[in-house]
Simulated scan of single mutants.
Amino acid sequence: MSEVILRQFKSDDAAWLIERHGTLYARDEGFDHTFGPLVAEILDNYIRDHDPGCERGWIAQQDGQRLGSIFCVRAADDTAKLRLFLLTPEARGKGLGRRMLTTCMDYARAQGYRRMHLWTHESHRAACALYAAHGWQLVSSTQVHSFGVDLIEQAWEIEL
């Protein structure tokens, strides 16, 4: 078995990423059919409009199998947004999430961003613990009903 690589996202990764988000979030979180189209919209916008000089997406891959994704996109001149952070179940618990998060944050710093933010759900405990361990701060929590389920949305930020 070869080493896991982090390669740049390509447009032909989009269908896999939409399917994995939809399937895994339905299975693990009970999300309904409205979540996949949101992921598709985010990816369509990225493919169409991203600035390769200051935005990047990565796909974690091993032996040709995709294992996850993470994206750094511009939110403002000095602020990046972390998006579409996903690890497949077989890739979890091996330090890959830490590697992906570090890669994304290092890229943001190298592009001159001074801060980052992200949006997630409280139920993603492992991801939230990873953010906290890397210095991210929880800045808000809001009860919502989204994707057919009751959730607590969270916003996190970090000064780079």
Rank of each mutant, 00 (worst) to 15 (best):
I5P: 09
L6G: 05
L6R: 07
R7C: 05
Q8E: 15
K10H: 10
S11E: 14
D12M: 10
D12P: 03
A14M: 14
A14K: 14
A14I: 02
W16K: 10
L17G: 02
I18H: 02
I18A: 05
H21G: 12
G22D: 06
F31P: 00
T34A: 08
T34V: 02
T34Q: 09
G36E: 07
G36S: 14
L38E: 11
L38F: 03
A40C: 00
I42K: 01
D49L: 14
H50K: 05
H50W: 06
C54K: 13
C54S: 10
E55C: 01
R56L: 06
G57F: 13
I59T: 07
Q62A: 13
Q62M: 08
G64H: 09
G64V: 05
Q65L: 13
Q65S: 12
R66D: 00
G68Y: 05
S69V: 08
S69Q: 11
I70Q: 01
C72M: 06
R74Q: 14
A76N: 09
D78R: 11
T79L: 11
K81I: 01
K81Q: 04
R83W: 06
R83N: 04
L84A: 09
F85A: 10
L87D: 06
T88H: 01
A91G: 05
R92T: 06
G93Q: 08
R98L: 07
R99T: 14
L101S: 03
R109T: 07
Q111E: 05
G112H: 05
R114M: 09
M116W: 00
L118D: 04
W119S: 09
T120G: 12
H121R: 01
H121K: 02
H124K: 12
A127G: 06
C128L: 14
A129M: 10
A129F: 03
A132V: 08
A132M: 02
A132H: 08
A133W: 04
G135D: 08
Q137F: 09
S140D: 13
S141A: 15
T142M: 12
T142W: 07
S146I: 14
F147P: 00
L151S: 12
I152Y: 02
E153K: 08
A155N: 07
W156Q: 01
L160S: 03
